[in-house]
Write a protein that binds this DNA or RNA. Structure first.
Length: 320
DNA sequence: CATCTAATAT
DNA sequence: GATATTAGAT
């Protein structure tokens, strides 16, 4: 028995770069006004690794409300200029904003996984996932696309860990680091632990937690000035794919730590710090999910999306 | 209309 | 290579 077996998990996240540390070198240097101005001037094409602070998916209400206390929004631009020479220039529908490619950072992906875990495979559909994640700028398509890939990843893992046991990587319990079926198909996915239920739905034990989440309507409160600020990480397709993946034969060590990317965005501002000074951190691989179950499981009864959303936020706070 | 899967485009 | 977008079916 190697302690590694139980250690790799407690540290898996610590190795992830924290948003603050990842802060590249821009972001808050840009004032909201600038960002806005930039936004309008963004003719087309990716090449703009800028993120939108308050991107309105469809209706662009001219609410030029510039909030001085904008959260760490990004606005990371840089060499966005050079479009590919030509392309479609000319028309720049301010109404049809084209957002930059979303970059799924490990943190963002983690939120995604948490959301799926909290919802249960059954309710984990693009729309609900997106809602639970509450990341500004995230669209249903973003999630759908990612979900599609994620499902394929899970499927592959099921195949490898189902039956033979072997070693796949750490076994079914821990999907994530250690070994992936194909290092060429999943990079990101390996950065987040995969709840066991994902691998065998209807197997193992607990059927599921959330029997059915009504998910009626999320935040439809009349006054919602909570313009989440995103921050979805966006970047250059080419720039980001510069790093390689020297991870091939790694065994119980630091599998992934070369992930360096933008930051992830948060939503509603939550100046809250630790809770009551109870650092109950270090959750075991299995207990991290259980914690959730108690929150929404049978004992907890049905909860509203809002609650779940909060749950995710808190969870992240704890696991940090 | 939302979702899923596969294929294709950027 | 990672995402986005599309198509066709459910």
């Amino acid at each position: 028995m190697r302690e590694e077996d139980s250690n790799w998990f407690s540290r898996w996240e610590e190795e992830l770069p924290s948003p603050d540390e990842l802060m590249p070198l821009s972001q808050s240097l840009i004032t909201p006004d600038l960002a806005m101005a930039f936004d309008i001037r963004n003719p087309n094409h990716h090449h703009a690794q800028q993120q939108q602070s308050s991107v309105q998916p469809a209706p662009p209400p001219p609410s030029a409300a510039v909030q001085p206390s904008s959260q760490p929004t990004l606005a990371e631009f840089a060499a966005d200029s050079g479009d590919l020479g030509s392309g479609a220039a000319g028309d720049e529908p301010a109404r049809t904003l084209k957002r930059p490619r979303l970059v799924w950072t490990p943190q963002l992906h983690k939120r995604f996984v948490d959301a799926v875990a909290h919802l249960g495979i059954k309710n984990a559909v693009p729309k609900t996932i997106m809602q639970l994640m509450s990341v500004d700028g995230l669209t249903r398509e973003n999630v759908a696309s990612h979900l599609q890939k994620y499902r394929l990843y899970l499927k592959r893992m099921q195949g490898l860990s189902g039956g033979s046991g072997g070693g796949a990587n750490g076994g079914s319990g821990g999907a994530g680091l250690g070994a992936s079926a194909d290092p060429a198909t999943d990079h990101l996915f390996a950065s987040s632990p995969v709840p066991p239920h994902f691998l065998h739905p209807g197997r193992g034990n607990s059927e599921h937690f959330l029997p059915f989440v009504p998910v009626p309507a999320l935040q439809h409160h009349h006054h919602h000035q909570q313009q989440q600020i995103v921050a979805a990480a966006v970047g250059h397709p080419h720039l980001q794919s510069q790093y390689h993946r020297p991870q091939m034969g790694h065994y119980g060590s630091s599998p992934n730590s070369q992930f360096e990317h933008p930051f992830l965005g948060r939503q509603t501002q939550q100046p809250m710090h630790r809770i009551g000074g109870t650092p109950m951190h270090n959750q075991a691989p299995g207990s991290y999910v259980e914690d959730l179950e108690s929150a929404n499981g049978n004992g907890g009864r049905k909860c509203y999306v809002e609650k779940q959303r909060i749950a995710i936020d808190l969870l992240e706070e704890n696991e940090r």
